[in-house]
Write a protein that binds this DNA or RNA. Structure first.
Lengths: 253, 253
DNA sequence: CGACTGTTTGAACGCGTTCAACTGCGGTGG
DNA sequence: CCACCGCAGTTGAACGCGTTCAAACAGTCG
């Protein structure tokens, strides 16, 4: 279910001043001194390949990460192996804040594609809180955003039926992906297998397959081996009764 | 489903210096200057009665609250009225942080019993972040804790069966209630109806009733009109395969 | 070529839903 | 005072959404 864990610290390829994400209009503008701090805060880059573990439940990680590129997901397991995917992780997202604050990781993170991560050291958080109240506020904001997404997910898994759930999830991921698309206006592709979808929706693989087929037959998505292409995001949102993501600017660490 | 909204700002009865919660051993010790700030930060007290709305989805609240006494819950609704309870709110918990940070509330909060709330003004958060990095850290910590609880809930609703879900939920609430019990060693009572349990677990009322009956028959809980008494918390945890709450100290705003 | 991953399909089963009806209790008003 | 209502809980029966079991196919990789 999760491959080996090869952690290669590459040399730093993206100085924060030339961050490819920061220019995107979803991210708020930062003050020069904030950027300077973040740049110092950043300790390097980590490249992980598809299927490998980024963080492991029960471990004490000394780092937290911002995703530069690639997709991942957070999940928890029950003792007998049942898996629940909690949320997905896209470029611009912060990973490992929970663990940094509370010590032990309570969930795991795995890469859905190859990923490039900015590495920050947990211990420097104290300095951040002491000297950069704006960034401290941002961290709380980021945690609150994750909470909002979980609220939505929980609503979905708890109260929507299979078709509504699938439609919501795909529309949701489509929205998130669009907001951090570098190359703009191409069809969005979600790099997941149907097993991932099943483990997110709380459904079996078989029934997930049959549900996805309905969405395909309605012309709303296209499915390729290991990825999902969205054709009709509004249609999906309509099925689930979902109103889309807020358009607020957000911070980027 | 939610009654009227009578909001009575009573005079301040509990100065922070004589806070009945703060002496509890679950809460971390605070520095004198932190207490002084919190005391100034606190603008009054709000008393709400059972069944009334504390916060409403879509509204822009100027306040955030710490629960002094009583129980409440956060929930979301689908357009057709299906309700999902996201989490419960107990004494010592902070309410409305999401809304304070992001503007519009994305969920509602309702009182399960009469509640007494400490009222803080949203706009003073800036001062907190600027002058009290320790408290700022605490706010992020509190948000991360909520995220952890949601993770657990999502795992439960997504991957546990009805009996496991019910057992987990009741054990979880038992643990939280115990940690903030003022009067110590009495049987914990959870002030919910079976409809609340159903809307938390993502089950129908009828099936929730039948599931709860199994727990009653096994001698693990007792049910009274509108409240649940826990008799065998370990038994419940065992059914669900849950390992209990962490024992870390936490902040109290 | 064989092994493996991801997807697909059919069929039987069963957990949980839905519909319906009834109980007990407390409050309310005629 | 009692009839009436509504809420919380309970129970039975039929139904159906989603699970489970089983088998098969396509594509990739060594």
């Amino acid at each position: 279910m999760s491959g080996a864990t090869p952690r290669v610290f590459s040399t730093r390829q993206y100085p924060c001043e030339a961050c490819p994400l920061r220019p995107l209009k979803v991210f708020r503008d930062f003050e020069p001194e904030e950027l300077t701090f973040i740049s110092k805060f950043k300790k390097g880059e980590l490249s992980v390949e598809k299927g490998s573990a980024v963080l492991v439940e029960g471990s004490h990680s000394a780092h937290l990460y911002t995703v530069l590129s690639g997709w991942g997901f957070r999940y928890k397991l029950l003792p007998d192996g049942r898996r629940q995917i909690l949320n997905y992780i896209l470029p611009g997202d912060l990973v490992g804040l929970q663990g940094s604050l509370m010590g032990e990781m309570q969930h795991s993170v795995e890469a859905l594609s190859s990923m490039l991560l900015c590495v920050f050291e947990r211990q420097n958080l104290t300095i951040l809180y002491r000297n950069h109240p704006g960034l401290a506020y941002d961290l709380t904001w980021i945690a609150a955003r994750e909470e909002q997404m979980l609220d939505e997910n929980l609503l979905s898994v708890g109260r929507r039926n299979a078709l509504e759930r699938a439609a919501y999830l795909i529309a949701f991921l489509h929205g998130r992906a669009k907001s951090v698309e570098l190359n703009g206006h191409r069809q969005v592709e979600i790099p997941v297998t149907q097993q991932h979808i099943a483990d997110t929706l709380g459904l079996s693989l078989v029934h997930t397959n049959k549900t996805i087929r309905k969405l395909i037959d309605r012309g709303m998505i296209r499915w390729r081996e290991g990825s999902c292409e969205i054709l009709d995001a509004e249609g999906l949102a309509a099925i689930s009764g979902w109103h889309g993501l807020p358009e607020t600017k957000r911070p980027l660490m």
